[in-house]
Amino acid sequence: MDAPSIETRGLTKRWGSFTALDHLSLRLEGAKCVGFLGPNGAGKTTTLKLLTDMIFPTEGECFINGVSVQESRKRTLEHAGVLIESPEIYPSLTPREALEMVADLRGVPASERRGRIDTVLAEVKMSDWADKKVGRFSKGMKQRINIAAALVHDPEVVILDEPSTGLDPRGMAEVRAIVRDLKKSQRLIFMSSHILSEVTEVCDEVALIDRGKLLFFDTLANVTKRFSDGHASVDVAFARPIAEAALRQETAALSSVKNIVPLGGQKFRIMFEGGLEAQEKLMEALVERHLGLVSMAESESALEEIYLRQISRGD
C-alpha cells in the first residue's frame, strides 16, 4: 500500500478580484505531522476546505492518496478524518449518537462501532459525557467530539483546522497529546494552527503561507536552521535573582554564546552557535558556577521569530 499523501497542484481560489489562494503546490507524503501556519486570511482554511471539497477551486486540483478530491469527493474522504471550522453537532444528539451516525455513514460495521466509539471518546476524554445531549456542551467539549468524529474510522489522513480553537489551556494541551498519539499510528496529519508553540511541539514539518502564497515548506529543524542565521537559542531560569551583566560575565568564557536577553523575573534567553555540543557545554558551565539553574529549554520562540520575519517581509 502506498504511503498516505496529500497534494495540491497549482491550487487557486478567487472570489471576484480577491485571491485567497494563489497557485499553491504542496506535496505531503508519509506518516508525519505537518503544521500549516499563517496569519488570519492567509489562505489556510481555504486550502483545507478545498482539500475536503467544501469549496471549489478556481484553478488547480488537489489529491488525497493520489485520488482527485474534485473528481471523487466520496472516495477521497473515505480515508480522511476531517475537522474544519469547529462544526456544530445537531443539539439533540448525544456524543455517542453523533459518532454512531458518523461511523454508520462511513461504513464502520455495526459489530465494531461501539468499540471504536468508546475508544475515540476515551481518547478525547469525553467518556463520562457520552450519553448527555450535545446541545448543552461548551465549545471546548463540542470540539473534542468533533475531533473524535474525525478519528472514529481510524483514518490514515487527518486534516485538522485549528483544532485547539475554543479550548482552555488544559484542553489545548490535551489536543496536543491527542495529535502526538495520532502520530504513533502511521498517519499523515495536516494541521493548521495559529499557535506556534503547538506546531513546534507536535509537528515534524511546517508550511508557512501568507496572502495565499506558500513561503516555505520544510522540516522544522531545517526551517529553524535556514532562517535563524545559524543561531540557536535556549530559555534558562534560575532559582535566585541574577543580573544580566553578571550572567554575561559568567558566560564570557564561552565563545559560542552570542547574546543574552532578559525575559523578566529570573529568566533569560541565551543565543548561541555550535549546535548540541555548545548547548551541552553551556549547561555544564551554568551548573558548575552554582547560579541556581533550575531549567533550560529550547526557546519556543525560534519558530515565532522566523514566522514574524517572513510575514513582515510581505508587508
Binding site: 471539497d53 469527493r73 474522504l77 474544519i84 469547529s86 462544526p87 456544530e88 445537531y90 462511513r106 474525525a150
Partner: peptide
C-alpha cells in the same frame, strides 16, 4: 447558518 453542515460535509457522502 448553524455550521452543522461542516459536520456532515467532512464525511464521504455525496
Amino acid at each position: 447558518q448553524n455550521k452543522t453542515g461542516y459536520f456532515l460535509m467532512g464525511l464521504p457522502i455525496r
